[in-house]
């Protein structure tokens, strides 16, 4: 299963961190720092794997992909195929690209909630459930519509609307 998904920029600032096994926040931050300390030393055009057993315990693997100013990192165990995980990063990024039209770091910075929604459609409890970015987008749009619907009344706060409807 997948243990964690991290997105961080090339300065080591975390942009998204999702751990599928509970970890206290300090450990999460520690893990992010550790991963970055390795990633930033890796030159371009080398393999996308990093030995992760030292930070995530035995039977941990790590693949990452470097896009512009961002690192996308997946940590998983031997039940996943390394190359398939690389493909999954691609799916994730493609979906983001569809969602934000030419995704850039700023989109990710400001759309924290949407990022998680997308990720939750692809992976649930560490299991890969959806690998088609079109399908993911369909769900995301539906969720956005629901969100908007439930917030529509909210343009006028509840207390006011209650008063008005009287």
């Amino acid at each position: 299963m997948i243990k964690a998904v991290l997105v961080m920029n090339t300065q080591g600032k975390p942009r998204l961190a999702k751990f599928y096994e509970f970890q206290p926040v300090e450990q999460q931050q520690e893990a992010i720092r550790n991963v970055f300390s390795v990633l930033c030393t890796r030159p371009e055009h080398v393999s996308n794997f990093v030995d992760a057993e030292s930070f995530f315990g035995p039977d941990s693997r790590l693949v990452y992909k470097h896009f512009a100013t961002l690192y996308f990192v997946f940590i998983f165990d031997s039940s996943e195929n390394e190359l398939a995980m690389l493909d999954l990063i691609q799916v994730f990024v493609e979906t983001l690209d569809k969602c934000f039209r030419n995704v850039c770091e700023l989109d990710i910075v400001f759309n924290y909630s949407k990022m998680h929604t997308i990720l939750d459609e692809i992976i649930l409890g560490g299991q890969v459930l959806e690998t088609s970015s079109t399908e993911v987008m369909r769900a995301i749009e539906e969720i956005a519509r629901l969100d908007a619907a439930s917030n529509a009344i909210n343009l006028v706060p509840k207390s006011v609307s209650g008063w008005r409807s009287r």
């Binding site: 975390p14 926040v25 999460q28 924290y112 969720i143 439930s150």
Partner: peptide, 27 residues
């Protein structure tokens, strides 16, 4: 999630927001 701030103190409020009838809040 991003800056490692402890939020365990707010767990009761989490439950409150979860039980909201509005989908956006629930989410």
């Amino acid at each position: 999630a991003v800056h490692g701030v402890d939020m365990s103190w707010a767990s009761f409020q989490v439950v409150e927001v979860m039980s909201s009838s509005k989908f956006a809040h629930k989410r």
